[in-house]
Design a protein around this nucleic acid. Structure first.
Lengths: 199, 199
DNA sequence: AGGTTTCTTGACCGTTCGGTCAAGTCGACC
DNA sequence: GGTCGACTTGACCGAACGGTCAAGAAACCT
């Protein structure tokens, strides 16, 4: 299935399917959610699903793709005008935590997708984009002598790990204030990458 | 199904099933692996499976339970005689990375299990034990004035996040030397929790 | 109004799933 | 060698799965 011409009504239906599937996948899991579950929830026939998507797989990859680009767009927007590389990292973390708090379903789907052989490839591609963004800022910070000279890719992954784990635990499970949680993540990460005390 | 009396031969069969299932679950995923896959790989009839386990579910929970206790036992052993709380944290991290590098399948299963509604409860129980261990050391370190006074539970989760992400990426995907990877994790985490420079 | 394309229906298909069970084999102990 | 519980077999079950498709409805042209 290549791109298909869709009327406005068709576009809306497609988005309904994506939204409905996202919610169900996040709640019940990808594999336990059947195509029948999705169309039943929407109250339409099964053929509707296969008019817009060629398979359950394709739909899920599409959800992941859209979510990843949305997340990155948000991060880029929040960072765009900041000249200080260390502050860019901080803003990137805050944007990520904020986005994840507003898109709990998609965040949940990310966590699952990296554990599934079928989707890990797509996830790693998108994730490496995020890592590369962070790496660029870290290299700048190192070049400016703001932080010690270390492997920036390792640091980027470490920051990603802290952000994921803390967001999952404190924002999604304990429902704490996202901004306060982001504060804790930033604090740990900036010390972790070796920024001299300032906070 | 409560515990069942097993002859030595029965015990061995049970362990074969666990080992076989662990490998398949880690490779293909839990849901896509059928009971038929497991018994076929072992070359036995389907009834064998249901002689030892009451369901696919129960088997998976059993795998997770055993793995979690094994991992914790390893960590406790490596730490037991260390009086310095900061060093206990370091040794705990090294033990975790080392264990994960030796049990790639089980580590993979952990990552999946926390994303699945059906198993997240069991996972969080075991994980909170690990977190509590770390919290105790962190509290000691704070009490001794070795690190700043911060929420030790947050720090423990942050350390867990860094360890998981870095281990997944560098040990399991890039096959780098586990000890060198552990070194990087320790470095980031000790700075993250605020240990004054010493390394 | 007629014709063309987009969209919708839901019965249907072949396959596979988790799980059961009557029947049989095996080894250990008397 | 007989007996008893531990183990094994594999055909079988109903339900559910992802996916198909002929047929029809609705929207939109001219």
């Amino acid at each position: 299935m290549t791109t298909r011409r869709l009327t406005p009504r068709g576009q809306e239906r497609r988005e309904q399917l994506i939204g409905c599937a996202t919610r169900l996948f996040a709640t019940k899991g990808y594999h336990p959610t059947s195509v029948a579950d999705i169309v039943d929830e929407l109250g339409v026939g099964k053929g509707v699903f296969y008019w817009y998507f060629s398979s359950k797989d394709e739909l899920f990859v599409e959800i992941l793709r859209e979510a990843q680009t949305d997340m990155r767009r948000r991060q880029q927007r929040e960072i765009s005008e900041e000249p200080d590389p260390v502050r860019r990292i901080e803003l990137g973390i805050r944007a990520a935590v904020s986005w994840a708090s507003e898109h709990a379903d998609l965040f949940q789907l990310f966590e699952f997708a990296v554990t599934d052989e079928q989707f890990v490839r797509a996830m790693r591609a998108g994730r490496s984009t995020l890592v590369n963004d962070a790496v660029a800022h870290l290299k700048d910070a190192i070049a400016e002598g703001r932080i010690p000279d270390q492997d920036p890719e390792r640091l980027a992954h470490a920051v990603l790990g802290v952000s994921s784990m803390i967001t999952m635990e404190y924002v999604h499970h304990r429902h704490e204030d996202p901004e306060a949680v982001a504060e804790a993540v930033v604090d740990f990460c900036l010390h972790g990458i070796g920024v001299p005390n300032s906070a």
